[in-house]
Amino acid sequence: MTDTTMAAEPIKLTRKDFASDQEPRWCPGCGDYSILAQTQKVMPDFGVPKENIVFVSGIGCSGRFPYYMNTYGFHSIHGRAPTLATGLKIARPDLMVWVVTGDGDALSIGGNHILHAMRKNVDIRVVMFNNRIYGLTKGQASPTSEFGQKTKSTPVGSVDYPVHPLMIALAAEASFVARTVDTQVDHIQKVMERAGFHRGSAFVEVLQNCLIFNDGAHRAFTDREVREDRMLVLEHGKPMLFGKNRDMGLRLNGLRPEVVRIGEDGITEADILVHDEASEDPTIHNMLARIYWPEFPVPIGVIRNVPRPTLDELIEGQIRDAVGRRGKGDIQQLLGGGDTWTVE
């Protein structure tokens, strides 16, 4: 996002300004409602006029998201939202562009596009709703469905191993990688706000519940009663502590992560890893993207956040350099360039 997206005068928009006149049509109780509400809530914080904001989506339940945002919106085709967002951003560096997608859309049919939008550091925020199932097509296994999971398309259990979405984002060199949960309202807001202010390719996994086809997919660690013990809320510069009493933590034992309890076996807070989201070295970030319940608490928050020039900045920069070196090109001269001859 370049400075031109900012309003000249501070504008005071509210959540309501970002709600379109369309009635959301997700199933009652769907986690998508919460993500929509929190997104609408944080949008005014960016100070970007709503006409300069574009939501692009693919196919699936998440694909409906743009219809409910009173910004510009493009509901495209399955898996291809990052491609449209990339072209839009190249043509219009002044716009703030979001991509809303799901686990099937982003990681199956659109896997290649996610990979390249991230590595090229396209200045887009990809918000992936991960319900670990195909919802809109009524319940087939998705690339994040569990091994052995019984679904409509896998009646005796899935034989596919699931992917780890955040590891893919990290492997693709996304410059911002985060995870949040649909039921944790404050946390979604925080993460969406961080993603919104990030410049470059941001990948946000939202663990989202599909009430109809995969209810409770994340419940084992997101339920109110257990979540403090089973999720690790990451904060930059803070030790990786968790648990109701914040007495459990993550440390490295050699090259392996290990859950330890403060006070046991002489463990002190000094033994606990301190989160550094800005570390260029991705080793710890990869570890955080990989560990999962039940072996480990599930990390949520911003895992990685590093500055890198964005695709649109680099393209504009090359144009600026070329104009600086040769002057602004004259198209008429270009047409008449090369070896020419004149017929009288």
Partner: peptide, 20 residues
């Protein structure tokens, strides 16, 4: 823009057109 595949290429072109 050298895209990752043919689909991304036309997608980016359409995205650029959408942007004017």
């Amino acid at each position: 823009f050298q895209a990752e595949d043919e689909i991304a290429a036309i997608g980016a072109a359409l995205g650029a057109s959408y942007g004017g």
